[in-house]
Design a protein around this nucleic acid. Sequence first.
DNA 1: ATCTAAATGATACCGCGCCTCAATATGACT
DNA 2: AGTCATATTGAGGCGCGGTATCATTTAGAT
Lengths: 146, 146
Amino acid sequence: MQTTPRLERLRDAGYKLTTARATVLGVIESHEGHMTSAEILEAVAGLDATIGRASVFRTLDLLTRLAIIRPTYTAGSSTPTYVLMPDGHHHHIVCVQCHQTIEFQDCGLAMLGERLEHEFGVKLTGHLLEFYGVCTDCNEAGVVDD
Amino acid sequence: MQTTPRLERLRDAGYKLTTARATVLGVIESHEGHMTSAEILEAVAGLDATIGRASVFRTLDLLTRLAIIRPTYTAGSSTPTYVLMPDGHHHHIVCVQCHQTIEFQDCGLAMLGERLEHEFGVKLTGHLLEFYGVCTDCNEAGVVDD
DNA sequence: ATCTAAATGATACCGCGCCTCAATATGACT
DNA sequence: AGTCATATTGAGGCGCGGTATCATTTAGAT
């Protein structure tokens, strides 16, 4: 089986490296952005039709628990989009009008993270920082706001 | 109709102040924490049985668009929990094992926000900062991790 | 009081995500 | 390499969260 850094993380955590898991992770990694579960399901089915829906969802849950990906709300109230957190963290801006996301690098959060670990006795593995606002396009499109 | 600061925000944005909206917002405000849609539905039904499910979900969407609340996926991939963002922002730690959330105050993000506004030409209204990790309890419960 | 348009509630519907369980594949051990 | 225990899988069905529809009601302006 292939051996990518992220797959190793699975093994290190005591999980088996299976085709289903490798495929799901591969899909997300190659996309390098936000994907809905529907998109992931479709892409996985395209690569390997023998992989079942259930396994995809199970893998998504697993990857989430390992802080490799993170479900995040962007559009409707349902169906999260999954975002890859290459180094355990991710940062973006979400336009509340058009749901476009702008990713950005960052940030003085490592320090804050360490402080929190001591303060609350937790072991942190990653973080997500989301800003909300109105993007340039939507702003110009002219919402009667201010 | 009642007049709370947050309800005024609805009116200012051009929305009508209805019983359904006031009730939903009241439920979330009085809970002051994370609530699933099921919990909100139940609480609303308890207060006013004439309010329909659809309106509750519509209101949740509306409040989200106004950055008054924010859905976040703390547990599974489905069913987000809604968190109140009193001042347009919120910060918490999510345990990836038991899904407990620890809220904390913050943070040097105002400065970062301003920088981003200039850099990307967006108008920010709020932000959410989530840390992921393992809480003390789960850590002691002994996961074979390191 | 009147009027208009936004908002509501009831219901039915759709599809995401989960559960179950027998079959399979992984990784450890010999 | 072969064997074995066990985690994991895939298929399919199910539950339910969330949405669409539409006639009715309500907020708010005049």
